[in-house]
Design a protein around this nucleic acid. Structure first.
Lengths: 344, 344
DNA sequence: TGCAATTTTGTTTACGCTTACAAAATGTTC
DNA sequence: GAACATTTTGTAAGCGTAAACAAAATTGCA
């Protein structure tokens, strides 16, 4: 390789290496005259600064590490991922940061990946793309006082962790109330992994709404599965095992992908949405409008979640003393055709 | 920060820093005895090597750069992306490499991103996740003799670029022949951006199959749109503008996401698949089995495309003199319910 | 012109690690 | 046990840049 370094430029421009370095940083203590001279030399030689060397000298890499939940494979499948990535990407790019993924299959793998990244000085900060109940990674980062932000609400110590999240209790509440407003009373909740804080919170909102409406909460109406197509399938089968008169007239499904599964399973069972059963979904990803019927879905602004996360992280990295914040990204219900007034 | 360095370990273990370095590299010229001693010191101090410093000394970062096509936003939306990423991830992880994304909005942005990455020494090699007709990035990488591999077939100089691809001509041929085998003769081709090599190749395969069957090729039967939902919609409208007796009885759509759009538009037009019109799709991503009807789709093994790409790249990085290869990932048709024999 | 104040540039060390080369320790042979 | 070969460890020079400190050049003003 042997690429051109700051020294080569210095030689050509007939100045000291440090002068070149200062020109790069656009240091005001260098005269315009020599700046021009140096820039010409850089141009002529096709010089590009070496990030690695700069990182070493600076103790900063301009790279953000992204951490996916243990089961990356599953996570990647969900359209949530590309969208949040797009947001992260844009937020990072605005400040000239690059993104690096922590790769790993198992939970241990990921943990070690994070440790290597952090201790190895590969990244200046870390974004956790999830929030789960007990998380060694969070503990680790906190112990080392390493800058990170979380997408989702931290299980505990939320005040001392900068995080970007929706008001998921409220979102669950709103979605449930939306169904109640259409006359539904037998409403089932199909949520994802109980380890995920988001699942727990939306469930809470669901319960709150039921309580407010005076509808008793029934354990048999809540199912927890993974955020995948299969999950939706299994969930619906469990519900349809109930006696006919007891079956829910409406479903609240906390993920669009699961909703697709639910939709298909219902179709196999010859039940039509929304005539036989109503459905409200979460996330409002691309294909929620492409399903049949198009899904009424709670749009949680995934892009913005990502965007804010990297923006906040960079703020923390660059000003270590920034106070911890919570950023609440708004949600809103997008009404489509999977919800209908209950038949009396 | 002031983390623990090789020197601290050396002091504690009472050896020279170089010895510690050699222990890390597990150099056989260090006696087992001192290895043990040094490892204990590392353990005790919680030492982790600094990647940046190592990179600088080594001139190698163990990082792979990923380059998405200019319109990253669109690309991210497509389920192709997460799947290929998963493959890349796994291939990289097996060899302890990390992935870094080139971020950027416009084509220029991306180009500059690549230049910075490469010249800045941030990455050891690059994977291009696409292949398009005229590409400055390819030219640039070739000029600098920088290791890269491409997913898809290079527009030119395919022999001097290591690339991982399907046999897309054959795939287009197979898909078309599959439809012909069901008695279809009026078959339309709905492809993506004409700038993408894959579009061109599958079209070629389509033409070949028609020719072999003695079916004349008609310009009005080929439509090119972007790989998105909207694309599918526009495409189908164009075809349905044809006189009734001239309308195709079967569609070959080169992307599942577009197929979803097509499916929905057809449904709006009150046409049922496969009764009124047959459809074969490409990629076989997650939801091609979740659509209604589930799509017959050509599975191109996206995961493996990614996996091979990073594996090959790493091979190139570590042995610069490796000859250029072409890796052909097999495809196969997954028959579902969107294709039916033509009605006479 | 002379001298201090100020601006501009140069010298040098440090960042944490690798590695060629040198030196020391150990082993082998007669 | 001397002489040499071999194994093991240490010394020191880099990798390319940043920045503290020192030195030189320029400016202003009497």
């Amino acid at each position: 390789m042997m690429s051109v370094t700051i020294k080569d430029v210095a030689k050509v421009a007939n100045v000291a290496p440090s002068t070149v370095s200062r020109v790069i940083a656009n240091n005001p203590r260098i005269s315009e005259q020599t700046k021009v001279k140096v820039r010409e030399a850089m141009e002529q030689l096709g010089y590009h600064p070496n990030f690695i060397a700069r990182s070493l000298a600076n103790q900063s890499t301009q790279v953000i590490g992204l951490v996916t939940p243990g089961s990356s494979d599953v996570f990647f499948q969900n359209p949530f991922f590309p969208t949040v990535l797009r947001g992260l990407n844009e937020g990072a790019h605005e400040h000239q940061y690059a993104l690096q993924l922590v790769t790993g299959k198992s939970e241990d793998d990921i943990y070690n990946g994070v440790v290597q990244m952090v201790q190895g000085g590969r990244v200046d900060g870390v974004v956790l793309l999830y929030s789960k109940v007990e998380d060694r990674i969070v503990t680790y980062l906190q112990d080392r006082d390493f800058p990170f932000v979380m997408i989702g609400k931290p299980y505990k110590l939320a005040e001392s962790i900068t995080h970007v999240d929706n008001d998921n209790v409220q979102a669950g509440f709103d979605a449930t109330e939306f169904l109640i407003g259409m006359g539904h009373e037998r409403i089932a909740y199909i949520g994802g992994d109980k380890q995920l804080v988001v699942t727990v919170e939306r469930l809470q909102g669901y319960k709150n709404a039921l309580e407010k409406a005076g509808i008793p909460y029934r354990d048999s109406y809540t199912v927890h599965e993974s955020f995948l197509l299969e999950g939706g399938k299994d969930a619906i089968c469990a519900l349809m095992d109930l006696p006919v008169s007891d079956r829910p007239t409406a479903l609240l499904v906390t993920d669009d992908l699961m909703s697709l599964g639910v939709l298909n399973t219902l179709s196999e069972l010859d039940m039509t949405v929304p005539e036989d059963i109503s459905m409200i979904s979460f996330n409002n990803v691309l294909f929620s409008e492409m399903s049949r019927p198009p899904l009424t879905s709670v749009d949680i602004n995934i892009f913005q979640l990502g965007f804010e996360a990297s923006a906040q992280l960079i703020k923390r990295v660059e000003h270590k003393s920034e106070p911890h914040r919570r950023i609440t990204v708004p949600h809103h219900i997008v009404k489509r055709f999977s919800t209908e007034y209950v038949k009396k």
